[in-house]
Design a protein around this nucleic acid. Structure first.
Lengths: 192, 192
DNA sequence: TTATTATACGACATGTGTGTCGCTTTTGTC
DNA sequence: GACAAAAGCGACACACATGTCGTATAATAA
């Protein structure tokens, strides 16, 4: 028997995702979610007991997707510098996406639900690990100069996070955005 | 006649501030504030009609304080590099402060109240302006190398913001923190 | 001391979200 | 088509925050 319930679950999470992107985490209610996915309270509560559960589900789905994209990106490209550029480009797309409000919601979630903060730490840590892989590869091939890999990785992740989290709130021009990426590139590339 | 009401107003805002630092902006209710400052609903509502008003009051007070500190810092020190270091040091103190949750609350406030986002932009803009002043001074005296002042200022502000905003959520060691400050210093200092 | 006014109180009516539960509808199987 | 199980519904009781308003208390002036 193919479960129809799983389909519904995805439908609910997708509806909730758009809500989280618009209103953040705390402000979204179960009632909102019910309305957005055109279901009754009873229907939604069959699958999720709280917005917290919905959010966790969303995080898990989103995370799988992200990991796929990045690993595909790494295997496809050959030059370390090109990989890094592609990585930056992808992040810029995330910043410019209408869904970018989600990054703020994730922060809010971590703040509001202390028992889930390990997920944020996990997320950050994974991001750092990916950058470290790129750095190591780039240094072996001579594309990158000598620098403190970990510190720079941490720096990039935090900085990107700031851009993503506040993209809904603050205006930043395309020009400034590419200047920022150049600053980051300068931290690893040979030429001054 | 010396107004007692103004004293009470400050008392309310101070109580609310500690709440915002603990729970963020959205999660704090008027009821919470009443309890924290040991006043009745009627008493508090005489001064503020909503948590939004309380928060705005808090922002204004906090802002004045910050401006004073920074300008005092600039006038006191002589060497540009020392000024920058002092600036970093102050920011680290903010990150480590038990009140650091406030930075997240400010983000949440800006996200939740679109009509108040201009205040955030103002805040960021002022931060950038201060850095630009330091940079200009530093370059004149030969302490700093040649670089894109605006881009680096924007970078520092965003990066610091990330550290402050996520300090409640993520762990970062003292060692890593000083490494990060070194990375920022390298963006402006002469030696490689 | 008394009158006046600013300050503070807390009960109340209202609005809104929560989670449950018995019932109906749909789906899949025999 | 009949039956059982899964999926979906929406009314209900409950919890909680809001904002108001008549009353009480404290502060100040005459």
């Amino acid at each position: 028997m193919v479960s129809k319930g799983n389909q519904t679950k995805i439908r609910i999470v997708e509806a909730a995702t758009s809500l989280f992107a618009e209103k953040g985490y705390v402000a979204v209610t179960m009632k909102d979610i019910c309305e957005r996915c055109h279901m009754s309270r009873g229907g939604v509560y069959r699958y999720f007991a709280s917005t917290k559960e919905v959010f966790i589900s969303m995080l898990d789905m989103d995370f799988e997707k992200n990991l796929e994209i990045v690993t595909a990106c790494i295997q496809e490209e050959t030059d370390a510098d090109t990989i890094l550029k592609a990585y930056f480009k992808q992040e810029i797309e995330n910043i410019r996406s209408p869904q970018s409000g989600l990054y703020f919601a994730i922060h809010e979630f971590a703040f509001a639900e202390p028992d889930q903060r390990f997920k944020m730490n996990q997320r950050v840590h994974d991001g750092i690990r990916i950058l470290l892989m790129i750095f190591e590869y780039g240094q072996k091939t001579g594309a990158f100069k000598d620098f403190d890999h970990e510190a720079v990785a941490v720096h990039m992740i935090y900085f990107m996070d700031s851009l993503k989290t506040s993209s809904t709130i603050l205006d930043i021009s395309d020009e400034m955005l590419s200047k920022q990426m150049a600053l980051l590139s300068n931290m690893v590339n040979r030429f001054e």
